[in-house]
Design a protein around this nucleic acid. Structure first.
Lengths: 212, 212
DNA sequence: CTCACTTAGTGTTAATTCGACACTTACCAG
DNA sequence: CTGGTAAGTGTCGAATTAACACTAAGTGAG
């Protein structure tokens, strides 16, 4: 292999699958493309790597630019490198997973996206590029990580009830959990600390917890 | 974000941490660099992505070119993107994990490497670039995957004894396993099939197994 | 030839974990 | 004050895990 690299460099970009909970269901943030190719199609937010920034920074920056929020959990989970995945030029995409609390839903209009919208993962539109593959993989990774509970905190407000936590768990993994066993598991993991406060709703107030 | 990408593209390369077992210990394949930078230092094999090839192909090709072998397990496990990790120009490195059976040790001299050698992971030399970080991460990932047993087959010949399998497990995870419980686990997983043949050594012959 | 050595191979038991189950508590609303 | 609804808790059987010791079979030395 020659020492100098005589081949053209591909572009490198990050794509971010941003999830949140809305009405108890897992939603993903998509933007409507404002330019060719795939004009008008929905796509994951993301963008190109800039000089002197790391991939993690790029993902965080793009997410901030396109949605106005700073994600708590931002995890690299794979590369997508099919030579023809972008018709313009070769683009290597580094895929990230991000989670937002359900109440941080300020969607800022971004300059090159016609609009940004949440979609329930159970009812997705057709996606641009290979973003359907990226999203499918993101869901797998997310479900796997959710089993450690703590990643779910990023989907909830700073203080939350155990029922909320369980709801997040079920929405992400797609599996129902048994209430008492779920609480036992959380207690064993020791990842939450109980507070002195309660959430007052329509019925018996529920104790609020916070990340331990 | 503008639609056209006006920033310079980084180079994209794969680096491969190739592991094997030698004398029961986990070894990693390193090459001695034959050019600047890091002339004479040891480094992970790897090389640049070519046009029209996917990252997975690139890793497999580079490994074949530099070691003459085709790896059974080749897993992407992360990206390394520090802007100054290569002094020549910006290089995004996609890191791979590969496993070789211990008897496939034909190390071919590669054109740009002065030599290639196995090193026990317990006694590594100083490494070029950020390859120490890449290798540390590879070891973590490998230990995690080894718990499912089947990835270990790539470290063993096509037919192996259960003691060999246990030895591979212990070398990779760094934990000792209890013989009977280990065999019970393997049986429960159902990932091996027993053959009619035996390995004859200095003592009682051991039944040979193969991947199920 | 046989005996000592070494690795292969097997079963049982106690401890722990996991999963399923039903009832009481507390607040709100009418 | 009462009915409804979600919060919260304890027990028991099943399944899994971890710890334990001995027998089997071949080699090599004497």
């Amino acid at each position: 292999m020659p020492f100098t690299y005589e081949y053209p460099h591909p572009a490198v970009a990050t794509d971010i699958a941003v999830f949140t909970l809305r009405l108890g269901a897992l939603n993903v943030l998509l933007i409507e493309r404002g330019g060719e190719p795939y004009l008008g199609a929905w796509a994951l937010p993301g963008g190109f790597l800039q000089p002197d920034e790391e991939l993690d920074q790029c993902a965080r920056r793009e997410l901030e630019e396109e949605t106005g929020v700073d994600a708590e959990l931002l995890v690299q989970f794979g590369n997508f490198s099919a030579p023809d995945r972008d018709p313009r030029e070769r683009v290597i995409s580094v895929a990230y997973l991000a989670l937002l609390p359900s109440d941080e839903l300020r969607l800022e209009a971004s300059t090159d996206a016609a609009q940004a919208r949440w979609f329930p993962v159970a009812a997705l539109p057709r996606l641009a590029f290979d973003h359907d593959k990226i999203l499918a993989r993101a869901l797998e990774v997310l479900a796997g990580r959710a089993r450690q509970i703590s990643p779910l905190f990023a989907l909830l407000p700073p203080r939350f009830t155990l029922s909320q936590l369980q709801g997040a768990y079920e929405a992400v993994t797609g599996e129902e959990a048994e209430k008492r066993n779920f609480r036992k598991m959380v207690a064993t993991l020791g990842c939450v600390r109980e507070t002195e406060d309660f959430a007052h709703g329509a019925h018996r107030p529920a104790r609020l917890y916070e990340a331990a």
